[in-house]
Write a protein that binds this DNA or RNA. Structure first.
Lengths: 304, 304
DNA sequence: TCGTCTGATATCCCTGGGCGTATGGATCGC
DNA sequence: GCGATCCATACGCCCAGGGATATCAGACGA
């Protein structure tokens, strides 16, 4: 790519004149007087080395050389204007693309609302949503494979990443409706000691897993896990069949199955936090915008 | 199309920096010092309204906005360079397109050589060759449907057009080889008085037609025309069948048919002129170039 | 033939872009 | 912690480009 030889204003003048084929009118269109336009064209022709217009009073016409230059000039100008507009749109966060990783358990709770309000505010933005568990999200953020992570129980020692808690929810017991405890409004954790458990595999979300098991331990028993399932949806389905019970973040109550009951647990102090994660050095305006969106939906005082 | 907002040098600097991702190297590539490059980029970013690069010593990278602008900037620059090159090629006559009308009788004589040498000198030029009789050529020149005409017996009163004679040739008698006069080296025109004639229709080339008939009249007879044919090729074919004889410009001797003989005529003073025609106000460099080509092949002293 | 329209030329002014040198400040690797 | 590297800033210079006004010259029509 060589040094550009032609000032753009000259090219603009050329294109306008080529449209009007009249110096006076073209000059008016450009908002300048006629002599400067003559000069512009003359300078351009000097640069090109050949006449671009044949002029006789009232009979301005393109030369073959001018005809050759015109489409290229047009393309260059529109390309530039379009590119500039696009860059501004992206720069201002009106457009662009954002890759978001999210924990499967959020697919029914945090994610839908977030996406909806974000899409409303940045309709031209392209969102690339992919389900990932916590550890891969952290890795993907570092890799710059994703720009935003939505995960449970953010690690506190990650360098280079920021986390902001967007939701803090209690746990609920997941019971088959045939279960004796399903009749009560709340469930004492210790009452589940004898029930078989269905849980997500530890690998999917070690922190959450450990937290759930820890709850049981605190209540005085070790849960007897009879089945793993990688999605809460599946966990609930298994519970419905009577295979066992489960403990889950309250948000999964969104999963409505006829044969499954969700019950508050006692003690209800334990909570699991959902956080948004992003790179410290990421200045992508869409990231900023998304965070602002989240900030409004989840003001700091709720995000403890 | 709006007023261009961005000076091209800034765009150039942007593209180069986006390639190198290193201010020092990019500046060297641009042949300037590093500080000016920083300024260029800064000014560009001010214009765009958003950062285009993230800079940390050694870690220069494009922002999303910059990434959006880059392809457009590249396209604009290459379009411009290409368009400029093309315009210069056309302006200098190295390339371009030329529409040439020619009389059918020249397809075998003047035209081939002309095209060959012209193609040698302007290999990138596109030639659009179309067979036309004289009157349509004149009209097409005025219409700007063709740029060059090759015709016989140029009218002398055409305003707005230039003519230059490129060939002046005598007439020959076209005889079936069975014709008694085919045995002679030359033919006295008057000896054809009794023979039936095959000629082109007058409408195809009134001047030439009148000239041929005038030859006969001068020789003391009115030719008995028994057949018309729109191409000399056909005329010769008809002569070969013995249908009649003809008078034709010497150039058609290029048409070689076994049963046809071409003989010089007496008196041999009459000549038909072939001329190239073009618009007075046509400054298409290819026209100039073609005329120059013809001028070399047919210097003024031959073109009487 | 004489206005009128159109485009070119002459002249002047001014701004901003582009470049240089000198210098400052941050980051990184040893 | 200390250079080395890299980018930004400050400042000054120059001039090409873009603008305006005034005027000229050619073509065309009434």
């Amino acid at each position: 790519m060589d040094r550009p030889e032609i000032p753009l204003p000259q090219l603009h003048a050329f294109v306008v004149l080529a449209e009007k084929l009249h110096f006076g009118h073209a000059a008016a269109r450009l908002g300048i007087a006629q002599p400067p336009l003559s000069q512009q064209i003359r300078r351009l022709e000097d640069r090109v080395g050949h006449a671009l217009f044949t002029r006789a009073p009232g009979r301005v016409a393109l030369t073959p050389a001018g005809n050759e230059l015109l489409p290229a000039a047009r393309r260059a100008l529109t390309d530039l204007a379009d590119g500039l507009a696009a860059a501004r749109a992206v720069g201002s966060g009106r457009a662009g693309s954002l890759r978001i990783g999210f924990a499967a358990s959020l697919a029914l709770t945090v994610l839908p609302g977030l996406l909806r309000t974000f899409r409303d505010r940045s309709p031209d933005a392209h969102l690339d949503i992919r389900e990932m568990t916590t550890a891969p999200q952290i890795a993907a953020l570092h890799d710059k494979t994703i720009d935003i992570g939505l995960l449970r129980e953010p690690p506190s020692d990650e360098t280079g990443l920021y986390f902001r808690t967007v939701l803090s929810e209690p746990f609920v017991a997941v019971l088959p409706s045939t279960h004796p405890l399903a009749g009560k409004r709340t469930v004492q954790l210790a009452q589940l000691a004898e029930s078989p458990f269905v849980l997500l595999p530890r690998a999917v979300g070690p922190t959450l897993y450990d937290q759930i098991v820890g709850l049981c331990t605190t209540a005085g028993f070790t849960p007897r896990i009879v089945q793993h399932a990688v999605e809460w949806q599946t966990v609930c389905a298994l519970v419905e069949t009577g295979l066992g019970v489960s403990l889950a973040p309250a948000g999964i109550r969104r999963i409505r199955l006829r044969g499954v009951a969700f019950r508050r647990i006692e003690p209800g102090t334990a909570r699991t936090r959902v956080a948004v994660a992003w790179r410290e050095d990421d200045h992508n305006p869409l990231v900023t915008r998304l965070l602002a969106t989240i900030g409004q939906d989840h003001p700091p005082d709720e995000s403890r």
